[in-house]
Amino acid sequence: MSKHHHNAPLPDTVLRVKALESLLIEKGLVDPEALDELIDTYETKVGPRNGAAVVARAWCDDNYKQRLLTDASAAIGELGFSGRQGEDMVVLENTPDVHNMVVCTLCSCYPWPVLGLPPVWYKSAPYRARAVIEPRAVLAEFGVTLDDDVEIRVWDSTAEIRYLVLPMRPTGSDDLDEHALSGLVTRDSMIGVGLPQAPVQQNR
């Protein structure tokens, strides 16, 4: 064994990011503390719970729901969530006749302020392509089967417009308060590839 145990070479991606980061910091174009704060935000603070709060509010407060459907960015801002890229939010309401589903066919635009960063499958080529071509088959793979007479609308996100699906309130949830309702809202239901959880039946 030699006296010095040197590090194994770093992977190419790591070296390239270190090169970018160190040069940009030296030029004063990015602030290292701001980078750390941003990473922490997306790792720990922003996620689908934000969107669930929006959905639960809309289920409980019809006035809020109307504001959400007419000016989603402002209504979402009421709960303290706002976008960083100046994007416009649009909320799509599911009804017994229409089911909405969201994709980004070109890259992976996603409503960060309400859902955090996208899951791996959302960023995959099969989802990007197939959500548009055969949404019903994709939904089936996610465990969602809709009646044939339900129209499926697929919405393609862009850098400027991000969509959030407002799922239907589950049956049997009439007694639940807003907080309990938000616990039923899944990330996938707000992308439109899932449904909210059913409320747990209380034994009386």
């Binding site: 790591v14 990011v17 980061e21 602030d31 980078l35 941003l38 990473i39 997306y42 960083r84 890229q85």
Partner: peptide
């Protein structure tokens, strides 16, 4: 995890901040 490896988080943050 949101990022599989730290370099992904760093690359993400650099683009957003720029």
């Amino acid at each position: 995890p949101v990022f599989a490896e730290p370099w992904q988080a760093q690359a993400f943050a650099l683009a957003v901040r720029l």
